[in-house]
Design a protein around this nucleic acid. Structure first.
Lengths: 161, 161
DNA sequence: ACACCTTCGTTCGAATTTGAACAACAGGAG
DNA sequence: CTCCTGTTGTTCAAATTCGAACGAAGGTGT
């Protein structure tokens, strides 16, 4: 099904809608840029690598299946394979084979990985706070969480469909 | 100045703050993924290339200085050089030297570029609408625009500083 | 047991992105 | 004019990203 019926004039974005969309895109790019730089300089980690450590750290045994981790990160499987290999070389993450499924692979946080995360987290969180969280009011944060949560949920749905 | 005074416990994100931050990151990644796929399939353009066309189209003479364009796009200068070259090969953008500054280069939208944008825009806008704009209420959009606008503005400030 | 379709993670090649280094020029201060 | 500092766009090597293709298993129905 085409996103727009051919022949009919599409509904363009009005001023407010455009402002929201541009704001989202711009803020996203600027934030990523900043966080990337800060993490790389202070901890030698890319934002992607940091996020891998975060998700593993939050998981039951500090380990997650590759596919599950890729979904949480919203990245491609091949991209994750690459980054896990990098983290493995740094000694921050290890691979374990899954007992119940020969094909399965667990990415597992090492002690060094936990330590690296413990060391990187404060600076990262402080910057997220400074650039985003503390700039917004409580109400704005609530709306953002609710709205973007809904957006994400819907995106995840027909992504699997 | 260190982001966090060494020795003091950093202010972690509480539940709501974390929800807002995760929602932002996740929605951003999922959206980019989708838009990238749609644009590439329907128009053979990457999201970056599409945005270049949009910004040029909105500019006075359909042309902008490389540096200015890079800032609007929130990308590196070298990255822009690469993409403009790609668009030039496709015939959608041309380069013109600046009269008042020998070093300067204008990226200029060609007629084909305008046509390509005219053709790509409806599908892109429709998807942005479906995935983000139409998911949110008028109030949520207003809050998002105001909040992320402020965030972007601040980020742009000490980026130049 | 068999065929069939799905899932798992990796590998591969191509495209993209970035920061640093660079050469050429602009714009003043002296 | 001359030196000095900042800007402009490009080039370069390195890192990262993605999708498609792949081999190897899992799981199901017959």
């Amino acid at each position: 099904m085409p996103s727009t019926p051919p022949g009919s004039e599409p509904r363009w974005l009005d001023h407010d809608e455009m402002a929201a969309w541009r704001g989202f895109v711009t803020a996203s790019n600027l934030l990523n840029r900043r966080l990337e730089r800060q993490l790389k300089e202070d901890s030698g980690l890319s934002h992607t690598q940091y996020e891998i450590l975060v998700h593993l750290s939050a998981a039951p045994a500090g380990s997650l299946r590759m596919t599950e981790l890729a979904e949480k990160l919203v990245t491609s499987k091949s991209g994750l394979t690459y980054q896990v290999t990098q983290l493995e070389r740094m000694g921050l993450v290890g691979r374990r084979s899954c007992p119940s499924d020969v094909r399965g692979v667990f990415a597992e946080l090492t002690d060094e990985g936990r330590e690296a995360l413990r060391q990187a987290a404060p600076g990262h969180v402080a910057l997220v706070r400074e650039l985003l969280i503390d700039v917004l009011t409580r109400e704005q944060l609530a709306v953002l969480a609710a709205g973007l949560g809904e957006v994400s949920a819907r995106l995840r749905l027909d992504d699997g469909a």
